Amino acid sequence: MRTLGGFADPFLAEIAGQPDALRRAAASLLERREELERIREAAVVSRTIVFTGMGSSYDACYPAVNDLAGRGFPAILVDTAELLHFRRPILNGQTLAVIVSQSGESAEIVKLANEIAEQRTRPFVVSITNGLDNDLARRADLTLDTRVGPESGPSTMTFAGAMTILSGVARLLAGDALDTAIDRTRTAAEGAALSAERLLDDPEAFAADLEDWHGGRGIMVLLGRGPARAATEMGALILKESGVMAESLESAMFRHGPLELAGPDMTAIVMATEPETRRLDLALAADLVEIGANVLVVTPDGTAPKGARSVATGYLDRALLSAVSIVPVQLLAWKLAQSRGRRPGEYTKASKVTTRE
């Protein structure tokens, strides 16, 4: 098991610290048993479950929202800026709001929490943050701490930790008994942690290999569907935060026009991890290879079309699969930043916590 020491820089150390972040977040649920029971009680009287966040916190919600909606529960995902300025009337006395924020201090998050507190009929608010000494947690009805600890670079450990807590919350909202929800979340987190440790066995060598595969191509897209969009959206974000232009698209939407960009100057990372659409995603990857794009396919078993590179995650609980499938993207972002003369994980224009809309 790796510690955060002995790495080239803090960003790489934080990437390597994700397996233990998964474990810490899952273990924290045991300490919040009474609070977690309140989620089940609040869900009974809620007509709508709204998940919201910004950046990586928003991306981390994809698996939980897809899981609940797939079981017939009225769960929706809206980024906090849109919710604040255009959709706030849905936050009423019959709403359960799950607000996710690394810091609990982002501009939109703080403003939304303040405005909810002033409503005459307000939703039941569950906050998920890294630590509890923040504006969001102070205004929430129920607070959950990811227990990730300090993180200075783009979201890696906090992304994994938030998804872990969200997986436990989703199980409770779907009707699992408290002990069942906690046990299943801890089992899922341990499986994801072990798989991530395998991919991170020699992170610098793997990152260098991925950079060679990338080959300096000018266009990069990340494609996925359903819960896998947590990895593709967050992957594109972390590449941008590392100074690399990349775009994330839902795989089906990519065929509706953006496919025209495909060719020898394109690198495409296809997350074909969801069983419902695996055949479709592998077919898209095969089409991209045929057109001449450079393609990496991530699947549980390493399956990929001829001519594409593959990465196997192992068969994992889909609630946390994105915490593993994103690892190659994180390592590629780290290496490309380093090779382009940037200090990996260091912001030059943005900041870790966005305090201005």
Rank of each mutant, 00 (worst) to 15 (best):
G263H: 05
W213G: 10
L336N: 03
K352E: 09
V298E: 07
L4E: 10
W334C: 02
R229H: 01
A27P: 01
L136C: 09
M157R: 15
F206A: 14
E247P: 00
A228K: 01
R279N: 15
R225P: 01
L29P: 01
A137S: 15
E197F: 03
A192H: 08
I291W: 02
G72E: 07
L173A: 09
A81H: 06
R309A: 14
N134H: 07
A230G: 03
A319V: 01
D20A: 13
K306C: 10
N134S: 10
L173F: 08
A107C: 08
L112S: 09
T303R: 13
L210C: 11
D135I: 10
D59V: 02
A75T: 14
F73I: 15
A16Q: 11
G53L: 04
A333I: 02
A312R: 03
A319L: 10
V98Y: 00
V50L: 00
E250H: 08
A189D: 07
P258M: 05
L142M: 12
E276M: 13
F159C: 06
I49C: 05
G5V: 07
R279T: 15
K306Y: 13
R229D: 03
A230F: 02
E82F: 03
A26D: 07
A207Q: 09
I99K: 02
E357A: 06
T273V: 15
T52C: 03
V50H: 02
R229M: 11
G226P: 03
I165W: 02
A231V: 05
A319P: 03
L91V: 14
R171I: 06
L321R: 08
A140I: 12
T164P: 00
I49R: 06
S56E: 08
T313P: 02
G161Q: 02
D201K: 13
D135L: 11
T143I: 07
L280T: 15
P150A: 07
A16E: 13
M234T: 14
D209L: 11
I165P: 01
R33N: 08
G216K: 07
I49W: 12
L199K: 06
R138M: 05
R40W: 09
L316V: 10
V78L: 14
A42I: 09
L172W: 00
Y62D: 01
V270Y: 00
L136H: 09
G55E: 03
V353M: 01
G216A: 10
G257A: 08
